[in-house]
Design a protein around this nucleic acid. Structure first.
Lengths: 256, 256
DNA sequence: CTTTTGCAAGAGCGGTGCTCTCGATGTTGT
DNA sequence: ACAACATCGAGAGCACCGCTCTTGCAAAAG
């Protein structure tokens, strides 16, 4: 493995050397994030304490600042990870239901995957979809990961259109300013991920964006307790609501 | 005043005396809440500090605890006030659009009132509809104020039905467990506010509850920054989305 | 007038985020 | 191989936090 390809070996060795110190850095950074994520899951973002993380890791609290310049930066890292995790969950559902012929069912599966992740990681969900952190830290890093589940929903619609099961929402009048926003957004999405299949602009509709936001209204109400003593059959209610959302977006089941 | 009407005079005097000290209490309590609300609006709930409130009011920090046993209790009081404020805004919109013959427009006005209040008081909105506070303080006190805007939405539907402009959402299958929840909820709402006109149970539908939650999905996404670089024509988009929601609920415009 | 009660103030405890300095420990250039 | 360098951990310390306890004072109650 060392001499098979000389140049590759040298590069690997250099990586290993530089890796020797920066791997230690990466390992400690990962350990800090891991412990922070545990505390986040246990107590929530408000109770996450740098000193407690350091204590648990057996290091001085001041040493943490070699890896994260502030508490808000640690939280920002956790935010990015959370966006990636929920995005991955949505994409997994999208893939595993890929062959499903019913776009409505596929839409529901993606939504259910997001809800399932949220229920499994309530504090991480609250971190990204609840009140923004006071520091309001992450402007750019989170943009791409945050778009993943929106993109997953869009792919459901795109595949439905390929199968002739998408009827663009017609009668609702879309204001011109909103139409402009949607055009710009389509261009931005194409520019951000050039390798991904370009999303047809006519699928990026106002009802789809609204459904995207409304999905999180449903999840947040459930997780944040607003359905207490209102709706107890949470799963059934969510599936029914999200099915209605699919129809609003323009998806049709094959039989209909 | 003492001998005019003996019993009444004594009672009035006792009220005045008790009022003398308990009015001071009420005034200081109100001042604390007012200053706390100012800090909440400035910096958000996370940065609200009892010591800073006391400092601003020129009193020792320990004196605050005579009025609020803990920081979470102060926050709970602010939460109740915020629910009342947004509920009042919704009811005001309901009343001022009372004579409007179009239920869809009325629905939109209520929704726009909620959104307007949220934009004017973003931190208070985040306090009640964002991530729950770690202390998870208020279980019962908030239930009634929180129901006010849901009730306002319901009244729009009820008046629409009276005008023959409500078509109950039909085709979507409602699971039996959800139907049970709705029945129980209708009973509970009738019991909680016996003086209010009883809400017809057939108006308390799953789509209406869903629309209620989804409304806050739209508002939260806007306020919490998820529409940044996505939708800039916020007002137009909101109105369009909320109009679609009205149709989902079963409201019809008179002309249609 | 005395006693009881309610309130404000101060000191203090343990905790927090964060900064600074100071040695120890590599890593790098000559 | 040695010196110069950058990196890192640890400790002390600052200002702030929520909260408790005690003390003294003033007003109400008897």
């Amino acid at each position: 493995m060392l001499c098979a390809a000389p140049e590759a070996g040298i590069i690997a060795a250099m990586n290993a050397i530089q890796g020797a110190r920066s791997r230690a850095r990466a390992e400690i950074t990962a350990a800090i994030k891991e412990e922070a994520r545990r505390q986040l899951a246990d107590e929530g973002a408000a109770r996450l304490s740098l000193r407690a993380v350091a204590r648990q890791l057996g290091m001085a609290s001041s040493a943490i600042y070699r890896y994260f310049p502030s508490r808000d930066d640690l939280l920002t890292a956790l935010i990015v990870d959370a966006y990636d995790a929920v995005g991955a969950a949505a994409e997994r559902a999208l893939g595993s239901a890929g062959e499903h012929p019913d776009p409505v069912a596929r839409w529901c599966e993606v939504c259910r995957a997001v809800r399932g992740w949220a229920r499994d990681h309530p504090h991480e969900y609250a971190l990204i979809y609840g009140s923004p952190v006071p520091g309001y830290a992450a402007p750019r890093d989170t943009a791409a990961p945050a778009a993943r589940i929106g993109r997953a929903l869009l792919i459901v619609a795109a595949d439905a259109r390929s199968a002739g099961l998408f009827t663009p929402p017609g009668p609702g009048r879309v204001p011109a300013a909103v139409a402009d926003d949607l055009r710009q957004l389509a261009g931005r999405m194409a520019g951000d991920a050039p390798q991904a299949p370009p999303v047809p602009a006519e699928l990026l509709t106002a009802p789809l964006i609204a459904a995207w936001a409304q999905l999180f209204g449903l999840i947040s109400f459930e997780l944040f307790g607003h359905f207490n003593r209102v709706i107890e059959a949470r799963e059934e209610f969510f599936t029914a609501s999200v099915t209605l959302l699919a129809h609003d977006v323009g998806l049709r089941s094959p039989g209909a």
